[in-house]
């Protein structure tokens, strides 16, 4: 039993990271119908920015929480700028023209970010400082590291924040309205381009947070981590019903758990097969994901 709980704890932690990244996919897909392939790689970049601040600039010597807060903040600012840049340069000109062309520029952006990171940070693994991973508590045979409890809590807070933003503010409501009808939103005086840019910033902030936490939690990062992470996160978003914000959160946690159980009880070799198998089965039974999709019907 305790081993089951242990897997659950591990799965929830990884799942929380997936959920944060999945939210980025789902927000952007929801309003412009784009599978933003560069989003996983943006998370990777976020992780490297955090590493730069902590290691290269030496902020790891500051008090732990201040150091982490500064690293996260820097990472959020830089990834936001990058993401809005990507939007303006690579996606915006194609927005009302060809969905396939944007998909290709997104793939191109993914390759671009990976290779940019490769150039700047090298092909090898970079080590994050062990700031929060060293200790933890045992509860009935289950080890919960401080990192797990802290990061899980932070992730939940961020998700709750995003959810409240989307749910209770007028701007957030406008974002959800874009998922239904762009023209009708324009007729309400909503500056659609600006709201899209805000969505890209939100996605970047969540990605940066996930990136820095992933670095601190797994303590090793490389330029390629965005691919697998993006894949899992995108799978989560689709599983929960793409465009659906609570769906992406739930999807992330479910994927994290599935993966953890599969690796624990079956074999790590099969976890991707297992995860995709579940996804495909769900989509065949319920083509709009577990919680239903919320996407724009017209562009």
């Amino acid at each position: 039993m305790s081993i089951f709980i242990q897997y659950t704890v591990n799965g929830l932690t990884a799942g929380a990271f997936y959920a944060l990244v999945a939210l980025g996919y789902t927000i952007i897909y929801g309003i412009i119908r784009l599978i933003n392939f560069a989003h996983g790689d943006l998370t990777m970049v976020g992780s490297f920015i955090g590493w730069t601040v902590l290691v290269s600039m030496g902020l790891q010597r500051l008090p732990v929480f201040l150091a982490i807060a500064l690293a996260a903040l820097a990472s959020m600012v830089v990834t936001s700028v990058i993401n809005v840049g990507i939007l303006q340069f690579a996606y915006k000109p194609l927005l009302n023209k060809s969905l396939l062309a944007i998909l290709i520029t997104a793939l191109g952006m993914s390759i671009f970010l990976q290779n940019a990171a490769l150039l700047v940070f090298g092909a090898g693994v970079q080590a994050y400082p062990h700031l929060v991973t060293s200790s933890g508590v045992f509860i009935g045979g289950v080890r919960i590291s401080y990192a797990q409890s802290i990061f899980f809590t932070i992730s939940l807070v961020l998700m709750a924040g995003l959810y409240s933003f989307a749910r209770f503010t007028t701007l957030g409501t406008a974002m959800r309205a874009l998922a239904v009808d762009h023209d009708a939103a324009r007729l309400m005086g909503i500056n659609v381009n600006r709201v899209i840019a805000i969505a890209f910033i939100l996605a970047a902030i969540l990605a940066a947070a996930a990136g820095v936490m992933i670095g601190l939690y797994y303590t090793q990062i490389n330029f390629f981590l965005g691919f697998l992470l993006g894949l899992r996160a995108f799978t989560s978003a689709v599983l929960g019903g793409i465009g659906n914000i609570p769906g992406a959160m739930a999807g992330g946690l479910v994927i994290g758990l599935l993966e953890s159980y599969c690796a624990g009880y079956l074999s790590g070799r099969w976890q991707d097969v297992f995860v995709f198998g579940v996804l495909i089965t769900v989509l065949i039974i319920k083509p709009t994901g577990l919680f239903g999709e919320r996407v724009a019907e017209r562009m």
């Binding site: 007028t170 409501t173 406008a174 959800r176 309205a177 998922a179 239904v180 009808d181 023209d183 009708a184 939103a185 007729l187 309400m188 005086g189 909503i190 919320r294």
Partner: peptide
């Protein structure tokens, strides 16, 4: 062209965006 996935009050709130 109302926003079908939003509530009546939210639709009105967007009118006041």
């Amino acid at each position: 062209r109302i926003f079908t996935t939003l509530t009546v009050a939210e639709n009105l709130a967007l009118g006041g965006y």
